[in-house]
Amino acid sequence: SSGGSSILDRAVIEHNLLSASKLYNNITFEELGALLEIPAAKAEKIASQMITEGRMNGFIDQIDGIVHFETR
């Protein structure tokens, strides 16, 4: 797709992000992006959206560029 990722790509990214949230206590956007094979800024945006929508527990430290995952 030309304008970003398809629905399937997005679903795969979100699935992998949720998997990462179970493996890590926290991770930088750079590391997360590398893990998900997407730019760091996109990793931040998707993580932020999932947390806001209540689909993933955690919070974002924008100063240090880190996602902190919280286990249920």
Rank of each mutant, 00 (worst) to 15 (best):
G54Q: 05
I66D: 04
L36V: 02
I27A: 05
A47Q: 01
I38V: 08
D64T: 15
D9K: 03
E70A: 07
R72F: 13
A43W: 05
E70F: 10
A11N: 08
E44F: 09
I13S: 03
A40Q: 05
Q49V: 08
L35W: 07
L17S: 01
H68F: 11
G54Y: 02
A34G: 06
L36D: 00
I7V: 12
A11H: 13
E30R: 07
E37K: 14
T71R: 09
G3A: 11
G33I: 03
I66W: 05
F59S: 09
E14V: 06
E37Y: 06
G54N: 06
E53K: 05
S21I: 09
E30F: 08
L35K: 04
D61R: 06
S5I: 12
K22A: 08
T52V: 12
L18H: 06
K42L: 15
T71H: 13
D61M: 07
S19T: 14
I66S: 09
E70V: 09
H68N: 06
M50C: 04
I46H: 04
A11Y: 09
S2C: 11
N26Y: 15
L36G: 00
D64R: 15
A20N: 04
G3E: 14
D9T: 05
G65W: 03
L23V: 11
V12D: 08
I63C: 09
M50W: 03
I13T: 05
V12N: 10
F59L: 06
M50R: 01
S6L: 09
M50F: 04
I13Q: 05
E31K: 09
T71Y: 07
D61L: 07
S21Y: 03
D61N: 12
T28M: 03
N26R: 10
S6A: 13
H15L: 14
A34L: 11
S19H: 15
G54D: 04
F69S: 01
L8S: 13
L17C: 04
S19I: 15
D61K: 05
F59T: 07
R72I: 10
H68T: 04
I63K: 13
S19E: 15
R10S: 09
F69Y: 02
A41P: 06
T28H: 04
I60V: 09
S1M: 06
N57F: 10
G4E: 14
A34I: 13
L23H: 11
N16H: 10
F59R: 12
A34D: 08
Y24H: 08
S1R: 10
N25S: 13
S21F: 03
V12C: 14
T52K: 15
A11W: 11
I46W: 05
L36R: 00
M56A: 04
L18K: 07
D64G: 15
I46Q: 00
G58Q: 01
S6H: 14
I27L: 14
A20E: 04
Q62I: 14
G65Y: 04
G54S: 04
N25K: 15
I7C: 13
G65P: 05
H68V: 08
T52L: 14
H68M: 05
N25H: 13
T71L: 07
L36K: 00
A20Q: 06
A43M: 04
A47G: 02
A34F: 10
E14G: 03
I38A: 02
L18R: 06
T52W: 08
F59C: 11
T52Y: 08
D61S: 10
T52I: 12
I63W: 07
A47I: 11
L18I: 12
N26H: 15
R72Q: 13
N57E: 10
I51G: 00
E37H: 14
A34V: 11
L17P: 01
A34C: 10
D64W: 11
S19P: 02
T52M: 12
G65C: 05
S6T: 12
H68L: 05
E14R: 03
N57G: 11
L23N: 09
F29S: 03
I7N: 13
L32R: 00
S6V: 14
A34E: 09
S5V: 11
D61A: 06
R10K: 09
F69D: 02
A11D: 11
L18Q: 06
K42C: 15
G58T: 01
E44K: 13
A40L: 05
E53Q: 09
N57I: 11
I27C: 07
E37A: 12
L23Y: 08
Q49L: 07
G4C: 12
A34K: 14
N16F: 12
S2W: 00
N57S: 13
G33K: 03
A41Q: 10
Q62M: 11
I38E: 01
E70Y: 10
D61C: 09
V67G: 01
N16W: 12
N16S: 07
I46T: 04
I13G: 02
L17I: 15
A47F: 05
S1I: 10
K42T: 15
S6D: 15
Y24P: 03
T52R: 14
S2L: 07
Q62K: 14
S21K: 03
S1T: 13
D9A: 05
G54F: 02
T52F: 11
G54T: 02
T28W: 01
E30Y: 07
I13R: 02
E31F: 07
T52H: 11
I63Y: 09
